[in-house]
Design a protein around this nucleic acid. Structure first.
Lengths: 223, 223
DNA sequence: ATGTTGTATATTGGATACAATCGTGCAAGC
DNA sequence: GCTTGCACGATTGTATCCAATATACAACAT
């Protein structure tokens, strides 16, 4: 019996079709696999997942609520366009929210979390596949915020990152973005390990501001 | 031609059923007309609006994405419960975000916006109907943030307010909540009119913190 | 009495079918 | 040539129907 219950994984709690589709679309959008302005046809998506349009529409409604797509009645939904000003605003928002998270997390951070963050940092430094950089970078930052025990702040930060992740990925891939990030990540971990909450917060804020400036430079140069 | 285009308001962009339902449910939830934990039956809502369950489900998915309801597969959706700790966290979040908004808005604030805010402040002071207090209070604060031109911050603040508006309403109705709010609102307007962005921001932050403390006191006293 | 099992009902998730609307191309008229 | 009107296909919005699941309760065994 014990063996069974250990393996008994709540079959009913499995994800619904619309949950699966939501996750797939969300991932594709934030990775930039779906370009800005691209229209998403309900029928095409439904066929990809072998479902009817109903769960597709429900997933799209959720994406709309989180701002990743924009919907126009009888015309369709498109991947949301975002202006340079908005990108900068969202980076600024992150620079406001994320230092609060890490400052609150530091005195509560477990050894396990610190080790995990260190692992992610090293994996990020060693990774050669460019598309995985974004994943690891994102996981690294999230891992430092979880112990804060501030679910609303955390969700707000995650939502903000969703909106600009494609640009963060570009910034990591171009110029010295990644090399700088690695060094700064290590500094942040060190501050956390030393229990210096304010320093960790300040480093986090500077890290975000630098990424924003670097990205702005890239955009203005390349058009 | 100018007159026409000024009045030409997008007749095709009329709200869909699910938009109407979304708005009605959202309003009912944030006003507290639907209690926490109350389950929302698709069929019942569909009958209220004389539609099928499809647009109802789409509205519920959007509410779920914004956190106002919680959905469990095959069981239904319930109005999200929120703990005291979460309420305090969201007030803290507001105290972080809204000062930024008003500080950015002050140097950009039009005379019209100032006048409008003053009107709302006075209407709030004179209103006798308790349920309208919440509306006017909310409108007052929003009116001070619009000129900031920070749509992401603004949306984040609105979303945070949605989650705790029912408690703000309680806080306004009980004790000296409303009387204090009126005085503090006027101080904020005065700072805005004087162009003192930092003072307006600080008053806003204190206003939010005081409301949070007042509410916490009410909750702990009354259970 | 208590606990278990079968069954009926209520409710949600999803598929199919239909209605409403948009965009486009094309022909007619000026 | 340029505009106007219209027909048609493509696409979205919604209703209706069926399947999957949960919940409540009755029948039954111990």
């Amino acid at each position: 019996m014990e063996g069974l219950s250990a393996r008994a994984s709540n079959i009913g709690a499995g994800a619904s079709s619309s949950d699966v589709i939501l996750d797939a679309l969300r991932t594709a959008i934030i990775r930039g696999e779906l370009a800005e302005g691209q229209t998403l046809r309900q029928d095409a998506i439904a066929k990809m997942f072998n479902v009817s349009r109903i769960p597709v529409r429900e997933a799209l409604k959720q994406l709309e609520a989180s701002g990743l797509v924009t919907s126009v009645r009888y015309k369709g939904v498109v991947v949301s366009r975002i202006s340079v000003a908005e990108i900068q605003e969202i980076f600024d928002f992150r620079a406001t929210v994320e230092p609060k998270l890490i400052a609150h997390a530091v005195p509560r951070m477990s050894q396990h979390s610190l080790d995990h963050a260190q692992q992610l940092c090293e994996a990020f430094a060693e990774e050669t596949d460019g598309v995985r950089w974004g994943d690891l970078n994102r996981q690294f930052h999230s891992s430092l915020y979880l112990d804060a025990g501030l679910p609303y702040y955390f969700a707000a930060a995650e939502a903000a990152n969703d909106r600009i992740e494609r640009y963060i990925r570009a910034q990591l891939s171009l110029g010295h973005g990644r090399a700088l990030a690695i060094a700064e990540h290590q500094q942040i971990i060190d501050a956390c390990r030393a229990g210096e909450a304010e320093r960790a917060a300040d480093l986090t804020r500077k890290h975000i501001v630098k990424a924003s400036e670097s990205l702005t430079r890239i955009i203005t140069e390349r058009g």
